[in-house]
Amino acid sequence: MSKYIVTQNVADCIGCRACEVHCKDKNNSGPGAFYCRMIEVTEATATPPRIDFVYLSCFHCEKAWCVDACPTGAMRRRDQDGIVFVEEGACVGCKACITACPWTVPQWNPDTGKVGKCDLCKDRIDAGLEPACITKCTTGCLSFTTPSAASQAARQAFAERMHQNLRR
């Protein structure tokens, strides 16, 4: 796991797919390739119906299958923060990483014949900014944070709800 984590407040997500587009615009991932995806999960017979969207991108694994599988060393992990990324010049398009990844996260770019994937917009991170998908999320339902900060925020929100309930 990279030192970062992307969290999503599903209640605020409207499935508008702006995150996917902001990613594609920024990273030029090629036709049919999505570094991040909003997956629709629907329970149509519930009242009211449940129509939710779950953000899925790369998990930036600590011990990444894709990195281990890559025969050329194109798939790499950044020392300073654990971001898993493709060094495009070294990618030969063998797709071993796609096969190796338990979630089939690496994406195929038919225009370049190479693999691409989420690198959390590391150039933006290095410039003190946040990834494109999070920066421009239509409703602000995505957050760029760290596991410990995410945990603290979730506990805080839970505590506030509990406190409110106790006061009722």
Partner: peptide, 8 residues
């Protein structure tokens, strides 16, 4: 900074 998909 929000922008919808069309704007994106």
């Amino acid at each position: 900074k929000s922008l919808c998909a069309k704007g994106g």
